[in-house]
Design a protein around this nucleic acid. Structure first.
Lengths: 131, 131
DNA sequence: CTAGAACCTGACGTTGGCGTGAGGTTCAAG
DNA sequence: CTTGAACCTCACGCCAACGTCAGGTTCTAG
């Protein structure tokens, strides 16, 4: 596949793919012309990379995890890395859940507050308050 | 309270507090000398700000949420903002959970892989493989 | 009174994950 | 053959949340 196809397939920019290559996350063969050529599996790989990015991992960490995906052979250091990241993720999920709950509380309060003085809503709409 | 006390109390840097002020997230009175003076509640407020930052909200968004904390009066636009952020958070939590599960899968595979060929571990230790 | 800790205001540096040209080559279609 | 899309390599730009240094003032303890 060509770089544009992979980009469209994975929903990222061409620039991003070149950046991943720069970081060593995604290798590509080259055609005689210099154009990059990717296997079809690249799309899935890029999606996974995006997932890890979204989870807050940086390129360096992803780089330490990805080789394992290819080989399915892990050194103790590597599995420890995986465990560390998983634990970090769990902690983060707990934190986010806490924030989510607090936002829910606030929303509960907010609804009551806005239903009380009708002026607020009216003011927000740019209308005068019920003459 | 003085800025150093708040910083230590909330576990952030003095620089961070000045930055929050710059962003309008944390107002401070001034002493005649120009030194900032905070109410005790500032510590809790800063902790909450940190929580929101950790949840991926940016200064602008936090700025839209914080006034509500003080007044407990919300415009429809504000509650919608809260709801949007909560929903975004839920989605993100789901994503992170997905990643977490995938990492767990990988860890399961990794353990088996490293227990099989003892060479890998040995190689990682920098020793030759059991001659 | 004096040292040193804590504070002040700029203002520039950093990091990561790309965006965005500039300027040139290659490919596919008519 | 030509044209326009897609590709290439630099290389600078950007944004957010601070870190950090400079150069100066203020507070507190002995």
């Amino acid at each position: 596949m060509r770089i544009g196809e992979v980009a469209r397939g994975a929903g990222v920019s061409v620039r991003a793919l070149r950046y991943y290559e720069e970081q060593g996350l995604l290798v590509a063969e080259r055609m005689p012309s210099g154009h990059r050529r990717y296997p079809k599996s690249a799309v899935e790989r890029v999606r996974f990379i995006q997932l890890l990015y979204a989870a807050g991992l940086n390129s360096r960490t992803i780089l330490q995890i990805l080789p394992f995906l290819d080989t399915l052979v892990a050194t103790p250091r590597m599995t420890q890395r995986l465990r560390d990241e998983r634990d970090r993720l769990r902690t983060q999920i707990d934190d986010l859940t806490t924030v989510c709950d607090r936002l829910d509380e606030l929303i509960g309060l907010a609804v009551r507050a806005e239903s009380a003085p009708a002026e607020c809503a009216a003011r927000e709409e740019g209308k005068p308050a019920d003459p």
